[in-house]
Design a protein around this nucleic acid. Structure first.
Lengths: 339, 339
DNA sequence: ATGAAAGCGCTAACAG
DNA sequence: CTGTTAGCGCTTTCAT
């Protein structure tokens, strides 16, 4: 029970494969009657064109790739949902790749994407990637790439990100407004652009409001709660005794939340806590977690739209655009002292 | 700057493409010297065989698919990590598909997998799938399929699941041991096999320990915390006044956890709560959530091993095996009343 | 030991 | 309006 091909139809109808091919694509140069017969038999035989043969022929696949560090991070899961939303509507299928924040895996993923003739890809760069030639090489060949969230600035292509600086500034300002004096920032991996920008927002907010900036108040960890709880425990045992914590992500904040509770301290009285991303989980904690909301779904949509634009008319898009989305601070009980 | 093909190598070396092809595959009928030259040039030109051409030729791709309802569910994310673990080691690439618990999407995913000549796939069936012919048809053609977690029993192929009955029984027994008298079960979608089995475990445990089984004590919702918090609120407002809740998943339990806290009740004193899966999140809650641990990573590994076995020697595996993994109850503060 | 030719499924000149 | 031919990149008979 093999797959039915264009050949089968041709044979049964005593036509050539090219005629069948043309009839199927509704070419104007085919007799109305022939067309009808072909379409009918195709329907009846449940014919579907072979995408692999088409890929070999046209060098494209109607698939687009998306590389994220980790699908279990709800932020990326939501971004992917946004990507699928527009891709699906435009007739593209999205193939998900995980780099597991590992450079080697990321390189493998990129190769897979290119070799399988994907039409382009979207990527949030892996944490430990420092060599970007796997992106650069493809981009130089004109392969459509869009960066999102974890952006690499040096390649001249479309990018979508959030205003990290603004979000961090406002989160920190909020803590200051709540009367916090010793505000610690727990950052993500220091070399990431998003980490740098969030740190900058934190720093500027302090300075703007007459609070000193101390390097010892800036801690750092990975973007996952397992590691963050450890770091938070250390922090709470240290001599700093923070009365406010701005965590660079919700996963980090969740780790802090658990460590604070574990230490017998209460939020927001002893420590006011705020995270970044406003994952669905944030509202479920006890007390509910304040967070800087990122439009993750919208980020996915925008990135996909830009990629598809790039795929459809590669020439018209000489100007690469960087889309900056805005955040807003969602205040919940973990940081709300005053009413 | 096109991709380098076997033809380029042939031309530069004044050989035929067939010779080059053979040399690359280290055929014995090729001169040692020729072989050396070919290999050297291939290396130098950074030649990689074109997987699309190979797919068209051999009807396979070295890709395996995995269909899950939703990647943002950490349980599935971990299963996928397990799948990738063994697939990667065996030289397969895993392509992730989301059904979003939607039948239509699932059918589309299956078609994509088949059309793109994936070597086989693993699937956790979508919640609202009631027609299984898209699986049945492929299975009848001999296409390798393995079911995991959300299993469909009627197709005779390998399956991997957890002992849901056992897990549910032990969770319920634990609540009974803690002195709970009015134990409510919040189930997942009722028609799912895992829901039925967990319900059965709950029921039997009650009966075995001299507690009555009331249908009004069984509530039901989807496997996500947003919807669960609503259901939990309703439950708490009802006349039941449960002193124990066994939630059919951690997401459901998280919703309950939030609703209980919101209502000003305390765990485990007023209500003892236990979930199912033991997601990383469970330990982070306040109070930490008890849960029935499922070996998610191991489930992924087993399922992938079975699929690859099926792919490699389809004939030898006439006997399909169903692997049942064991659970264990992880007790934390949300349910621990006695010490 | 190597080459020529056919074919995987399909489309696109190029002919009639 | 329809058929023939060539080719996407590769492997595999079948010759030599």
């Amino acid at each position: 029970m093999r797959k039915v091909t264009i050949k089968d139809i041709a044979k049964q109808l005593n036509l050539s494969t090219s005629t069948v091919s043309r009839a199927l694509r509704d070419s104007h140069e085919i007799g109305i009657e022939t067309k009808r017969k072909v379409l009918e038999l195709a329907e009846q035989l449940d014919y579907t064109p072979d995408p692999v043969a088409l890929s070999l022929l046209n060098s494209h696949s109607n698939d687009i790739g998306v590389i994220v560090p980790d699908i279990s991070n709800p932020f990326f899961a939501i971004v992917i949902a946004g990507i699928e939303d527009v891709a699906f509507a435009e007739g593209y299928h999205v193939v998900i790749y995980q780099s597991h924040d590992d450079y080697e895996r990321e390189v493998l993923n990129v190769k897979h994407i290119y070799n399988r003739r994907k039409d382009g890809f979207l990527v949030a760069v892996a944490t430990n990637t420092t060599d970007f030639s796997h992106f650069k090489n493809l981009h130089d060949k004109g392969f459509p790439i869009v960066f999102f969230d974890r952006i690499y600035e040096e390649i001249d292509t479309h990018k979508v990100a959030v205003d990290d600086y603004e979000g961090a500034y406002n989160a920190t300002k909020h803590l200051i407004d709540q009367g916090c004096q010793r505000i610690v920032h727990i950052s993500g991996p220091p070399h990431l652009l998003i980490s740098k920008r969030r740190l900058q927002g934190y720093k500027t907010a302090l300075l703007d409001h007459g609070l000193p900036y101390h390097e010892e108040y800036v801690w750092s960890t990975h973007f996952d709660s397992q590691q963050s709880i450890e770091v938070a425990r250390q922090l709470l045992k240290s001599a700093i005794h923070p009365d406010g914590i701005f965590a660079a992500s919700d996963n980090i904040a969740i780790g802090c939340h658990a460590a604070i509770t574990e230490a017998g301290l209460t939020m927001p009285k002893d420590i006011a806590l705020i995270g970044f991303s406003d994952l669905p989980m944030a509202a479920m904690l006890n007390p509910p977690l304040s967070s800087v909301a990122q439009p993750a779904f919208e980020m996915g949509r925008s990135a996909a739209e830009l990629l598809i634009k790039l795929i459809k008319k590669p020439n018209e898009n000489t100007q690469s655009i960087t889309k900056v989305l805005h955040t807003n601070v969602v205040i919940r009980a973990s940081s709300l002292r005053k009413t």
